[in-house]
């Protein structure tokens, strides 16, 4: 039996909860998940601080949308589970917009393009032609479109070797444990400039185009149905695209343009 005292207590509790809930909604922090082992997009510098193309871009987007944002670092293959478990609210980590992922999450408009390309020892004979990959070992990162391509499209031709981070995949290509790696041409460009080129590595073949696997560029992932957050990001994207902020960030990392269609370019 409920006594009046208990009733008023319950009422008070509900009211208090409602109040804190409302207060929280106003100063809500958007937690953006990223895998900080993906230089130059997101990585930790010597001091352990988050740096990179998408960190700068994400901060610019949050400023444009007047949102308080917070970065959360996690393994790439744990980002979508973390999003759906409400540990984070968005993912900005060079995540390609694919039909597979769209079953689990929603995406914003295209943030960047993301051509996939093989990297191998110069003169290895490896190209984007599957015939050149017969019997080869290809290093890929777990949970990526690249892993999917090698396991599905090159099944019975090449052997995938799956790593937790692309850094480790590069390391093992260097160590000679894998014949090639398949990753985003952008991050490969950065690696080739910093280490790969000096050790005799180069792009192998043309960029791969298989929209069924590689999707349509990268986007920011949000929970299914979180259209409010997706809209905020989309508007912010258009803003940083048109006021030139995006281009400034892009040009400080790459001599080419990878800005996606979501940013209305000048």
């Amino acid at each position: 039996m409920k006594t009046p005292v208990l009733n008023s207590l319950t009422l008070g509790l509900v009211a208090a909860l409602a109040l804190t809930g409302a207060a929280r909604a106003q100063e809500k922090t958007v937690r953006i998940g990223t895998e900080a082992a993906y230089a130059p997009f997101e990585y930790k510098d010597d001091k352990g601080e988050l740096k990179g193309y998408e960190i700068q871009l994400g901060n610019a987007l949050c400023a444009a949308a007047k949102m308080k944002c917070e970065w959360v670092n996690a393994d790439f293959d744990s980002l979508i589970p973390a999003l759906n478990a409400h540990k984070i609210d968005a993912i900005l980590s060079q995540m390609s917009i694919t039909d597979d992922r769209k079953k689990a999450v929603d995406f914003t408009n295209q943030v960047t393009i993301a051509p996939a390309r093989f990297v191998a020892k110069d003169g290895s004979g490896i190209t984007d032609d599957p015939a050149t990959l017969k019997g080869k070992t290809v290093a890929v990162q777990s949970g990526t479109t690249h892993e999917k391509y090698v396991t599905e499209k090159l099944a019975g031709i090449a052997t995938p070797k799956v790593y937790q981070s692309q850094d480790e995949a590069f390391l093992d290509v260097e160590n000679g444990r894998a014949d090639a790696t398949l990753a985003d041409a952008t991050i490969e460009y950065d690696w080739l400039q910093k280490t790969g080129k000096a050790k005799g590595f180069a792009y192998a073949g043309k960029p791969l185009t298989d929209p069924a696997i590689f999707g349509d560029g990268t986007g920011i992932a949000v929970r299914k149905g979180d259209t409010a957050l997706a809209d905020s990001f989309n508007k912010a994207l258009a803003t940083v695209g048109s006021d030139g902020q995006f281009k400034t960030i892009n040009d400080s990392y790459f001599p080419f343009d990878i800005m996606g269609s979501g940013a209305a370019k000048k």
């Binding site: 293959d77 744990s78 979508i80 589970p81 759906n84 992922r101 689990a104 999450v105 777990s142 949970g143 892993e147 070797k161 799956v162 790593y163 937790q164 093992d172």
Partner: peptide, 21 residues
Amino acid sequence: TVTLIDLTGVGRRLAAKTYTA
């Protein structure tokens, strides 16, 4: 963590593919 597909490796690969645990 060194590309061996042991029990945990299988579980992780599967989790990465299905986006669930």
